[in-house]
Amino acid sequence: MSNNSSGEMSFLDHLEVLRWHLVRAFAGVFIFAVLAFIFKGFVFDTVILAPSDPDFFTNRLLCWLSTELDMPLLCINQEPLSFQNIKMSGQFTTHIWVSFVAGIVVAFPYVFWEFWRFIKPALYSKEVKHSRGAIFFTSILFTVGILFAYYIICPLSVHFLGTYQVSEKVENIVNLGSYIGTITSIVLAGGIIFELPIFIYFLAKVGIVSSEFLRKYRKHSIVLALILAAVITPPDVISQLLVCIPLIILYESGIVIARRIEAKRAKQMANN
């Protein structure tokens, strides 16, 4: 039985309820975006520009590893990048855009919770219980994905793209907007990619994918992970493994999740 005890709602009533959930979700994003706009020193110097700095945690760690393992290629981002702004309003518009993205990232758990509150009345009591767990794991995976992208992929990508040259005659002076666009894209992509087990859960739940299908294309997923790691990391095995292994683990987790859903479905069919 549905949790909605207020009776059937019309289509317009549903739209009105959805509208207020969207308003509250946007308000959450707006509040965090305003805070990010106010504290621009922290957002830009401490967060956004940090992966290009030699003192960044990952850069210092990899340089220490390069000494311990005698692998000089691991020591990255030892020369800070030079940034430039070529538009009159470039820094201001970049400030606004980064603040908005920061608002989305920080407010993501709240935004997801608002959407869950919208669909909650249509769920059965048992489904509501499982949905609460989904909210928790979705938020955790999104956060872990962002941290992984920020601390692992961003420094490696900054080093590779910032030092790559087609000729020694061409100097890399990075446009500020281009750099920030790259960092924000990588971070958001990391958060979304780490939602892979959640996506597989829902796809397996509705029968679109199966554990057999995922096992069949396991080799393809490993190849794609290796290609992605090779593109965004320096040409050494350790850096590529740092990126590749978590992606493979996420895929394998999806196979386990799909298998458990199939086993549960088979058990329910047997009981019926």
Rank of each mutant, 00 (worst) to 15 (best):
P54A: 07
L156Q: 10
F100W: 04
C63Y: 00
K120W: 06
K126T: 08
L18I: 06
I153E: 01
N272S: 10
F39T: 06
Y124H: 13
W64K: 11
S66W: 02
F108N: 06
V187Q: 02
G181P: 11
M269R: 13
T233Y: 06
W64R: 14
F142K: 01
V98A: 12
L12D: 09
L49G: 08
L247D: 05
T46A: 14
I222P: 00
Y151D: 01
Y151H: 13
V29K: 04
H14V: 08
Y151L: 15
H95Y: 06
I245D: 05
S2C: 11
S82W: 10
Q91K: 13
T58M: 14
V47G: 04
I183T: 04
P155K: 03
G133L: 12
S66C: 09
A258D: 01
L176T: 06
P54G: 12
K129T: 07
P235S: 01
L203N: 10
I152A: 03
V43K: 05
I227W: 05
T184R: 13
Y201S: 11
E171K: 15
V158A: 00
L161R: 05
F100N: 01
G254P: 04
K126G: 03
V243F: 08
F148G: 06
L247R: 03
Y179L: 05
R259S: 13
I173F: 08
F213W: 15
A263S: 13
K216V: 06
D53T: 03
A263H: 09
L242Y: 06
A270E: 08
F30H: 00
S6Y: 09
Y164Q: 11
E16M: 15
I119C: 12
C75G: 02
V256T: 14
A50M: 05
S239D: 08
A204T: 00
I48M: 13
W113N: 11
V105T: 14
I200T: 08
T182R: 05
V106P: 05
T163R: 14
F42T: 12
M9E: 03
E168N: 15
W97H: 10
I146W: 09
R60S: 06
P234F: 09
L141W: 02
